[in-house]
Design a binder for these strands. Structure first.
Length: 586
RNA sequence: GCGCUUGUAGCUCAGCUGGAUAGAGCAUCGGCCUUCUAAGCCGAGGGUCGCAGGUUCGACUCCUGCCAAGCGUACCA
C-alpha cells in the first residue's frame, strides 16, 4: 500500500516537472508514513513541505498542485491537505481487510520478503574466549545476534552465523596449564593452584576426563613442576610471572605433543559446553572459525605482507607496527611483538581479510560494548587492505545488569553467585530469557530483572504476548465445544462487517507486520519486532474484552473468527522468528 | 586528557531515521468476572525530552558548548 502511494506521488511530481512547475533536476525522496492520528487519515506524505523551498512556493499551494495531479486509485477514497502542507491519504477499509485473507493464504510465510535476495551476509556473534562457560553478559549478545541473523534471513538474505574461536594466545595457555595442574591433583599430587589460573569446576571435570583417558602418562613430580618457579602473588610474588613460568615449565616437561593434547582437551571440553549451551538457547552456527587456523595456514603472514606492500607497516623498537593512525585510528598498533609473536590484532586483521575474501556483501560483527575502542583499528586495517569499509558493520551490545527484585545481583566468579547463561536460562526459562534480552535496543544499557522475568502476571511482557495467542486458541476450542463449524469463505465475504473500532485498529496493526519485520531486519533492531508484538497483543486483548467473537450471527461470527485467527498467525510468526514458544493454553 | 555509548513520567524503556497534541509497562488511585482464560480490560493523575545556544516553516531527533553515568584508551586476548 505504501509503495502504491509512493508511486502515485512520484507520478504527480513527475507531471509537475514536465509542466515546469518543478525543476527537473529535483530528485526528492518520496516518503509515505503511516499517520499517527486517525484524523490524519491512514497515510501521510510531507513531500510538499520538502519541495516548497526549492520550488519557491508556499507548501500548501504546492500540495494542492500535487494532489491535483495524483492519478486515481481504487483504494484511495479521500486525499486531504492538512496543517502546514501534509498530504493525508484515506484508504478504503475494504482494501485494508484484504490483509486478513492474505495472512490466511500465506500462513507462516506472511511477513517474509525478498528485499535481501541475492545478498550474502555474515553475522558473527558471541565469540567468547573458550576459557569457561558463557555468562549472562554473553547471553545478550547471543540472543541479539541470533535475532538479527534470523530477521535478515526472514527478509531474504543468505545468512551465515559464525563464532570466532580464540583458540590461540596466552589465555589458552593459562587454560591448558590449569587443566594440567588439576590433572596432577587427580593423580594424587598436592600443589598450590596459581592465583591467576582458571579455578572453575569445569576445569576439574576436564582434568578428571583426561586422567581417565591417559592415566598417569602426563604426570611429573610436583617438586620438578614448581622448581625455581617465581613466587605467586599471595606469597609476595607476581601472579603474571608465576603463571608464565608454569606455562613454560609445562611445555618443557610435557613436550610439544603432550602439551598440545592437554591444550586440545581443555579447548574441546569448553567448546562443547558452549556449543550445547547455545544450542539449548536455540542458536546454531554454520561455522566455528578457528583463530589458530589463521596462523597455521599462513593467513597472518599473508595479511601482514599485504599491509606491508601497501606501505602501512614499519619497525620500531624491535616490533612491527601498523600505521593505523593514518587511517583514522588514534594511534599506531603493534602487529608483531619484539619477541616475534604476532598480536591478537594481527589475527583479527587476517580474520577480516578472510571474511572479505569469502565474498560477503555485508559483514556484521556483534561485539560487547567494551570492545568499542577496537573498531577504528579494524576499519583501518580493512581500508589498508583496499576493502570497502562500508561492508563492515559493528553492532555494540551493552552490558546487562542483573537484578532480583530491587537488588542488584553481583556477578563475580569468586562469590559463585549468578553468573552463567545456563543458570539464567534455568531460572527464568528460555522464552523469558530471549524476550528480555532482545526487548531493549542493543546499545541501551539494560536492567534485567530476574524476578520480573519469572512472574506470571501482567508485569511480565512475555506472558502478555503469549497469553494473547493462547486466548485465540481458547476461543477456537470453545467453538468446538459448542459444536460450531468455522466457515472461512463466509467469513471472508463478510469482512466488511468488522466495523468496531477495535477491529479496525487490529486490521491496521496486522497490515503493518511486514513493514516492521523489514525495518527490524535492515536496521538490526529486533526490539522493534518485540514492541510490535506487544502492541498487537494489546490490541487483541482490548478487542477480546470489548466484544464477543462467538455470536449468533453467522456472518459476523465467521468474519471475527477470521480476524482473530489472523492475529494468532501473526503472533506465531513473530514469536517463532524470535524462537519464543507460542503456547495453545496457559 | 581524549574517544565511544547513554541521559525522555517516581521506576524500566519506546519514539518509524526532521513532522501534526511526546507514548507504553510497572508503581499510585478509581472501576469491570452468572457470557469465549481477570497472566485480561476501561479510566485518572504523572513531562522544562540532562542544561544552554544554533540550524528551519517545524527539533526528543541535526550542529556546537557544557553537565552527569557507563565503557574504553596494552608489544592482553
Amino acid at each position: 500500500m505504501k509503495q502504491q502511494l509512493e508511486s502515485l506521488v512520484l507520478h504527480a511530481v513527475d507531471t509537475l516537472k514536465t509542466e515546469g512547475v518543478l525543476e527537473s533536476e529535483l530528485q526528492p525522496k518520496i516518503t509515505i508514513e503511516r499517520a499517527r492520528e486517525q484524523q490524519h487519515g491512514d497515510f501521510a506524505s510531507n513531500i510538499a513541505l520538502l519541495l516548497a523551498k526549492p520550488a519557491k512556493m508556499n507548501p500548501r499551494q504546492l500540495a494542492e498542485k500535487i494532489v491535483a495531479h495524483l492519478p486515481a486509485a481504487a483504494a484511495v477514497i479521500k486525499v486531504e491537505i492538512a496543517g502546514p502542507g501534509f498530504i493525508n491519504f484515506f484508504i478504503d477499509p475494504g482494501a485494508q481487510y484484504q490483509v486478513i485473507t492474505q495472512i490466511h493464504a500465506l500462513g507462516q510465510q506472511f511477513g517474509l520478503s525478498q528485499v535481501g535476495a541475492g545478498k550474502k551476509v555474515q553475522v558473527e556473534f558471541v565469540s567468547a574466549n573458550p576459557t569457561g562457560p558463557l555468562h549472562v553478559g554473553h547471553g545478550r549478545g547471543a540472543a541479539y545476534g541470533s535475532a538479527v541473523a534470523d530477521l535478515l534471513a526472514a527478509v531474504g538474505f543468505e545468512v551465515q552465523r559464525e563464532y570466532y574461536v580464540n583458540d590461540a594466545g596466552r589465555q589458552m595457555d593459562i587454560l591448558a596449564t590449569s587443566v594440567w595442574l588439576r590433572y596432577l591433583e587427580e593423580c594424587g599430587e598436592l600443589l598450590t593452584f596459581p592465583s591467576n589460573g582458571y579455578r572453575g569446576d569445569y576445569i576439574h571435570e576436564i582434568a578428571a576426563d583426561l586422567r581417565r583417558e591417559v592415566d598417569n602418562e602426563y604426570r611429573h613430580p610436583i617438586a620438578l613442576v614448581f622448581e625455581d618457579i617465581p613466587a605467586d602473588a599471595p606469597q609476595g610474588g607476581d601472579k603474571e610471572k608465576h603463571i608464565d613460568a608454569l606455562i613454560a615449565r609445562a611445555k618443557t616437561l610435557l613436550g610439544d605433543k603432550q602439551y598440545r593434547a592437554i591444550f586440545q582437551a581443555g579447548l574441546k571440553g569448553i567448546l562443547a559446553d558452549i556449543r550445547q549451551d547455545l544450542s539449548e538457547f536455540g542458536i546454531e552456527y554454520q561455522t566455528w572459525f578457528s583463530e589458530r587456523s589463521l596462523m597455521e595456514d599462513g593467513s597472518i603472514d599473508e595479511a601482514l605482507k599485504r599491509l606491508d606492500a601497501a606501505g602501512y607497516l614499519y619497525e620500531k623498537s624491535g616490533a612491527t607496527w601498523f600505521a593505523s593512525s593514518r587511517l583514522g585510528d588514534e594511534k599506531d598498533r603493534v602487529v608483531v611483538r619484539d619477541n616475534g609473536q604476532s598480536t591478537y590484532f594481527a589475527s583479527d586483521i587476517a580474520y577480516h581479510m578472510n571474511k572479505l575474501d569469502r565474498g560477503f556483501d555485508q559483514i556484521i560483527n556483534i561485539w560487547g560494548a567494551d570492545h568499542h575502542g577496537y573498531i577504528p583499528r579494524v576499519r583501518a586495517a580493512m581500508q589498508a587492505l583496499g576493502a570497502d569499509t562500508d561492508k563492515l558493520t559493528v553492532q555494540l551490545v551493552q552490558f546487562a545488569v542483573l537484578y532480583r527484585g530491587g537488588e542488584q545481583v553481583q556477578m563475580s566468579t569468586r562469590s559463585g553467585s549468578f553468573v552463567t547463561l545456563r543458570q539464567l536460562r534455568n531460572e527464568v526459562g528460555q522464552d523469558a530469557a530471549r524476550f528480555f534480552y532482545v526487548m531493549r535496543k542493543a546499545e541501551q544499557h539494560m536492567d534485567f530483572d530476574l524476578k520480573l522475568a519469572t512472574t506470571k502476571t501482567n508485569e511480565n511482557p512475555v506472558f502478555y504476548v503469549q497469553y494473547a495467542h493462547a486466548r485465540v486458541c481458547s476461543v477456537f476450542k470453545q467453538l468446538e465445544d459448542k459444536n460450531l463449524q468455522r466457515d472461512i469463505p463466509l467469513g471472508e465475504q463478510n469482512l466488511a462487517k468488522l466495523t468496531e473500532a477495535q477491529e479496525i485498529k487490529l486490521v491496521m496493526t496486522l497490515s503493518r507486520y511486514p513493514e516492521v519485520l523489514q525495518r527490524a531486519a535492515l536496521q538490526y533492531e529486533p526490539h522493534l519486532l518485540i514492541n510490535y508484538l506487544r502492541e498487537l497483543a494489546a490490541d487483541f486483548h482490548s478487542y477480546y474484552n470489548a466484544h464477543q467473537f462467538i455470536v449468533e450471527d453467522d456472518a459476523v461470527r465467521n468474519a471475527r473468527l477470521n480476524l482473530i485467527s489472523a492475529v494468532k498467525q501473526v503472533l506465531a510468526n513473530g514469536l517463532g522468528l524470535l524462537r519464543i514458544n507460542t503456547p495453545e493454553a496457559m
